[in-house]
């Protein structure tokens, strides 16, 4: 499920939405969340979000850090680091303090980088984009 090179590691996910599960509605969590299936609605968590390569998300998202591999239709608001994988497709605006984008990713939306420094993005080798 996880790649060695990914900088966001999820060891103790509170919620896992598996590949054959569809969740609809308002999700408010405190712990880490893994999405490998389908999510529709709004999603907020105080911790990290991992969106798998085959996941489909149609939601506005608020989280601390995130690793996006699959498709997201909606706005992403992160207090920390966002890592976008090579097959990711994001149709929406992005707000984060630190960002890395792999070659091949598709982003259709505005990117806003805030100046707050967050410890989550330490030692990142990836490209950083500032608007």
């Amino acid at each position: 499920m996880f790649n060695k090179d990914e900088k966001i590691k999820i060891k103790d996910a509170e919620t896992i939405i598996g590949p054959s599960v569809k969740v609809k509605g308002e999700f408010n969590g405190q712990g880490d969340i893994i999405i490998e299936g389908i999510f529709e609605g709004t999603l907020k968590t105080a911790n990290a979000l991992y969106v798998g390569d085959k996941a489909k998300v149609k939601a506005d998202i608020e989280a601390k850090d995130a690793r996006v591999g699959g498709e997201i239709i909606g706005n992403l608001k992160l207090r920390g680091y966002l890592e976008i994988g090579p097959v990711a497709k994001i149709f929406g605006d992005i707000e984060a303090t630190s960002l890395s984008v792999a070659q091949g990713a598709i982003i259709n939306g505005d990117i806003k980088m805030s100046h707050e420094k967050q410890p989550a993005a330490k030692n990142g080798k990836a490209d950083e984009t500032n608007e």
């Binding site: 054959s20 599960v21 569809k22 609809k24 509605g25 308002e26």
Partner: peptide, 11 residues
Amino acid sequence: QGYSIEILEGG
């Protein structure tokens, strides 16, 4: 009452 779960495969 916040979200619903639909399961798309047998199990």
